[in-house]
């Protein structure tokens, strides 16, 4: 029996079109209501005028924004040298934790201790301890720079997390891949390098993207031990202008970087889910 058709559509298509129209209508109505509520209700609060002046001052924003951007370059710089170091150290720690040969047992212990310690201590505490502690040894310039030791603190902390992600990636490669590679006569080391690692690294790219985004934000923690990066610079402007708008400016700059990066990570994650299905 044929389904009745109208304008060349099946009855299912007509039904789905109706459903679509209805959900668009509902979604736009509720969005408009939410925005109206915000725009109307928030300015009715007693402190709104003060908050508006001290957080959303257009003049202050225009004055400080270019300098904030300059300061952000320092964040980018620190990020740029930390990220590759973290990738390498994280991978080495992950491999050390999976080392099988008895001679490498100390390495395994070291890897386990490393991840336990640096995942267990708040980042800011590591930054303080290393950033103030090591230059306190009285090292000559430039070896007392907070840039070096602050970066090291970030590298150590993030390597611990990145190592665990790499390890989960190594575990995610099916053991039959190992069997196949071993059956061809490859050594354990060759199996790891040529067969397991390439697949493991690919599997964890989205997860590592999220670590990169977190790192980009945590670079600001170095401001506590000296470097005048964007957060510190915003603080300076806050004192100068007696206004909080520079912090909002800094937040805008962070979001301009992290939102596209987060979207891209989500896209990679969704793509991977689709490929696995």
């Amino acid at each position: 029996m044929k389904t009745p058709k109208a304008a060349g559509l099946t009855r299912r298509e007509i039904y789905e079109a109706q459903q679509r129209r209805r959900s668009v209508l509902v979604a736009s109505t509720s969005t408009v209501l939410a925005v109206v509520a915000l725009v109307v209700l928030v300015p009715l609060t007693p402190g709104w005028d003060k908050v508006k002046r001290s957080f959303f001052n257009a003049d202050v924003l225009v004055d400080t924004f270019p300098k904030l951007l300059d300061a952000f370059l320092i964040n980018v710089m620190i990020f740029a040298w930390c990220a590759p170091a973290i990738a390498v150290l994280g991978l080495l720690i992950a491999l050390a934790r999976d080392a099988k040969s008895p001679a490498l047992f100390p390495l395994r212990i070291f890897g386990a201790t490393f991840t336990d310690v640096f995942r267990g201590v708040p980042v800011i505490l590591t930054v303080y301890l290393i950033g103030f502690g090591i230059p306190g040894l009285g090292l000559p310039r430039p070896w007392n720079s907070p840039y070096i030791w602050g970066s090291l603190a970030l590298i150590l902390t993030y390597s611990a997390y990145v190592a665990e992600i790499f390890r989960s990636g190594i575990d995610s490669v099916h053991h039959s891949q190992r069997s196949a590679a071993l059956s061809l006569g490859l050594s354990e080391r060759q199996v790891m390098r040529d067969v397991v690692l390439p697949q493991a690294v690919r599997n964890v790219v989205p997860a590592q993207m999220n670590m990169l985004i977190a790192l980009q934000k945590d670079v600001s923690l170095l401001s506590f031990i000296g470097p005048v990066e964007i957060f510190r610079q915003a603080g300076v402007f806050k004192s100068l202008t007696a206004n909080f708008t520079p912090y909002v400016g800094a937040a805008i700059i962070f979001l301009a970087v992290t939102i596209p990066a987060t979207r891209y990570a989500d896209y990679l994650m969704a793509k991977q889910m689709k490929e696995r299905r």
């Binding site: 039959s176 891949q177 069997s179 196949a180 590679a181 071993l182 059956s183 061809l184 006569g185 040529d194 067969v195 697949q199």
Partner: peptide, 15 residues
């Protein structure tokens, strides 16, 4: 293992 070849039910090619 280099002298004995083996083929598996699930192919196990390196993807």
């Amino acid at each position: 293992r280099a002298r004995i070849g083996m083929v598996f039910q699930s192919y196990n090619l390196f993807p």
